[in-house]
Design a protein around this nucleic acid. Structure first.
Length: 281
DNA sequence: CGTTTTTCCTGGCAGC
DNA sequence: TGCTGCCAGGAAAAAC
C-alpha cells in the first residue's frame, strides 16, 4: 500500500523515464480507472501532449503536460507504473498503456482496480476530489506544531483514523501511522483531544522524520515482486511496530498486540502505548 | 457539521 | 485438489 515515501519514489522513477516524452497513443483496458466521464476526451487531450513534469501532493501524482493539462493519478493499494520497450509484453492487470515517442510504453497495472486517474486543466487540479481538502505536507515548514495542536484539540476521534484522514495531514497510511504512534508512545485508540501538547510535538517530529527517512530508503516493499517503480524500497527492514504482532517491543520486550482500530489492522505495544482514560485495549 | 459505516476489488490464504 | 468464505485496505460516498 503505497504511502508518501513510496509515491515519492514512484514520482522520481517516472521523472527519469517519462519527463520530456510525448504521448503517441493510449490503450485503456479497464475504463473505470479513468474517472473522466468522457474517455475519448481524456485520450484526445493527452495524445500529442508532452510530459513536462511529474509532481506529487500527499499520495497523489500529478503529471503536468505542455498543453496546460494535469493528469492526477492515485495508486491506492496496488497501483504500479512500469516501463517496457514498445514490443514488450504487458503484465497481467495492466489497465492503461501510454505509448511514448521513444519507442517505449508507460504501463499502469493494478490488481485490485482501486487506483484512479483523471485529466483536468491545470487550474482545476486542486479542485479534484481529495486534493481539494488535503492537509499539509508532512515537512518541517508545512506541518507546524501550532496547526497540529489546533486540529487535535478540536477532534474527539481516535488518533489512528484521525491521522489516516488525509485532510488532517497528507501522506500517512496504515504502516507509517502504526510506526509514528509507537515512536510517540501514543495508543492508537487514544482520542486526539486527549493527547498532551508535549506528545503532539513529539508526534509531529516523528511524522516528519519517519517519512523523510523512509523516502531516503525508497519506501517500504510489502510485496516480494517486480521491477515496477517504488518496489525497490528496503525500509521494511527499519519498521518497529507494523507487521511485528507477537514479537517483543524493542523498547520494553512486551509482545506487540494486533487489534482493529476503525476497521484497520493495527499493531501496537500494550506496555508503551497506554490509553489515558479508558482501560480497554 | 463531525463522525462512522459502507463500498469498491481481487489475490491469498484458512478451513473443510 | 478444489471449493467456499473471509480478509486486506485508501478514500469516496452514504448513512448516522
Amino acid at each position: 500500500m503505497p504511502e508518501l515515501p513510496e509515491v515519492e519514489t514512484v514520482r522520481r522513477g517516472l521523472l527519469k523515464i517519462a519527463k520530456g516524452r510525448k504521448i503517441a497513443a493510449i490503450d485503456i483496458h479497464y475504463e473505470k480507472t479513468i474517472t473522466n466521464e468522457n474517455i475519448a476526451w481524456f485520450k484526445e487531450n493527452l495524445i500529442g501532449a508532452t510530459i513536462v513534469n511529474v509532481d506529487r501532493r500527499g499520495k497523489y501524482l500529478l503529471f503536468c503536460f505542455d498543453n496546460q493539462m494535469t493528469m492526477v493519478s492515485h495508486l491506492r493499494m496496488e497501483g504500479k507504473y512500469y516501463n517496457l520497450p514498445e514490443d514488450g509484453e504487458i503484465h497481467k492487470h495492466t489497465h492503461v498503456v501510454f505509448h511514448l515517442d521513444d519507442d517505449t510504453k508507460l504501463c499502469y497495472s493494478d490488481s485490485r482496480k482501486f487506483g484512479r486517474m483523471t485529466l483536468v486543466k491545470n487550474d482545476e487540479a486542486l479542485q479534484v476530489a481529495g486534493l481539494k481538502t488535503i492537509g499539509p505536507e508532512p515537512t518541517a515548514e508545512t506541518l507546524t506544531v501550532e496547526y497540529l495542536q489546533k486540529i487535535m484539540h478540536a477532534s474527539r476521534r481516535e488518533i489512528k483514523p484521525f491521522l489516516l484522514d488525509q485532510s488532517n495531514v497528507a501522506g500517512l497510511g496504515n504502516i507509517y501511522v502504526d510506526e509514528v504512534l509507537w515512536m510517540s508512545k501514543i495508543h492508537p485508540k487514544e482520542h486526539a483531544n486527549l493527547v498532551s501538547d508535549e506528545q503532539i510535538e513529539q508526534l509531529r517530529d516523528n511524522i516528519i522524520q519517519e517519512l523523510a527517512v523512509a523516502t531516503e530508503h525508497h519506501g517500504t516493499t510489502v510485496h516480494s515482486y517486480t521491477n515496477a517503480f517504488g518496489n525497490a524500497g528496503e525500509f521494511q527492514n527499519h519498521l518497529h511496530a507494523y507487521g511485528n504482532a507477537g514479537k517483543p517491543c524493542e523498547r520494553c520486550g512486551t509482545p506487540f498486540k494486533k487489534i482493529k482500530v476503525a476497521q484497520r489492522g493495527t499493531t501496537y505495544c500494550p506496555h508503551c502505548q497506554i490509553l489515558t482514560e479508558n482501560e480497554n485495549d
